[in-house]
């Protein structure tokens, strides 16, 4: 707690105003500054945690993070003790200073978009984003679905205003669906990477992994239980088998593991066929960039 307050004190000295935007719990779960692994709100348990649990050292006690300081908070979360552990486990040397610098730079670009009027800023979503970072690094090996969901949590902090298919210059300008993720594609048009997680009987888009595990997005855009392994399916490109599975010879089968030869992405457990080989369905989230190498 002392550490937290000290860090916050530092932030206050760089000009923090203190509008009470987020009400954070101050119970026994307050970050004690130790290096214990964090568990985030995006964890498998699906339990929500207090904001102070996920706030990190740079979260102010009152939860109010002005735009000028949000990148410090996010950089701290993206370069936490969980990051160190994950980087080390993945064979990377962790450099906190570089890690923070890179994350802050990316975040600063989004802040600039907000200041340019092409995105909005919602400080109340910071705890969710902070938790997403810590939880993702805590898992360390992360599925595409998990990464996109984590990204969806952070996309709520900065929300672009440019809709899908419209011209853009940076990711921050693109408008993501609630809980989803958008990006400025290589064609410099906004594209939606993820439409947000949907539970059974909730609406979904075409994105196969939008529906929660074990569900499929049906033709009428509703999440329904996926066809089980061995069940009948209509065609190779059908997605009724659910994310990670595919329709093989008109029967649902488990997707192929990493490194398997693939003709289309649906054959892979990762639903990613890169250079005719299946990508790892749970690749290490740590990489040189994120570890500050």
């Amino acid at each position: 707690m002392k550490m937290l307050l000290a860090s916050w004190s530092k932030l206050r000295h760089v000009g923090l105003a203190a509008p009470l935007v987020i009400a954070l719990g101050c119970g026994s779960n307050v970050d004690d500054g130790t290096d214990r692994p964090d568990t985030g709100v995006m964890g498998d348990s699906g339990t929500n945690e207090t904001a102070s649990d996920v706030g990190g050292d740079d979260m102010p006690p009152d939860g109010a993070v002005p735009l000028e300081n949000v990148c410090d908070v996010i950089a701290s979360a993206a370069c936490s003790s969980n990051t160190t552990t994950c980087c080390t486990a993945s064979g990377f040397t962790f450099d906190e200073k570089t890690c923070r610098s890179r994350q802050k730079q990316y975040c600063d670009e989004q802040v600039a978009v907000v200041k340019a009027g092409k995105a909005t800023y919602d400080a109340t979503k910071i705890p969710g984003c902070v938790a997403a970072w810590k939880d993702t690094f805590s898992k360390c090996k992360v599925s595409l679905t998990d990464e996109l969901r984590a990204g969806g949590a952070c996309a709520l902090v900065f929300r672009g205003t440019i809709t899908r298919g419209s011209p853009c210059t940076s990711d921050g300008e693109c408008k993501a669906p609630e809980g989803g993720l958008a990006a400025c594609g290589s064609s410099k048009l906004c594209e939606v990477l993820f439409y947000g997680e949907a539970k059974a009987d909730e609406p979904c888009r075409t994105n196969g992994y939008q529906c929660a595990a074990g569900l499929q997005c049906t033709g009428d855009n509703v999440c329904k239980p996926a066809t089980p392994i061995g069940g009948a399916c209509p065609s190779a490109m059908d997605q009724s088998c659910g994310f990670g599975n595919f329709c093989n010879a008109l029967k649902c089968a488990a997707g192929l593991p990493a490194g398997s030869a693939c003709g289309n992405y649906l054959e892979c457990a990762s639903w990613q066929c890169v250079s005719s080989k299946c990508s790892d369905p749970t690749p290490p989230f740590a990489n040189k960039f994120r570890c500050g190498v």
Binding site: Q110, N287, F289
Partner: peptide
């Protein structure tokens, strides 16, 4: 694109 800051920033050669 290689992974950058944030989530979902990486691109693959599909």
């Amino acid at each position: 694109k290689s992974p950058g800051g944030g989530f979902g920033t990486e691109e693959n050669c599909v």
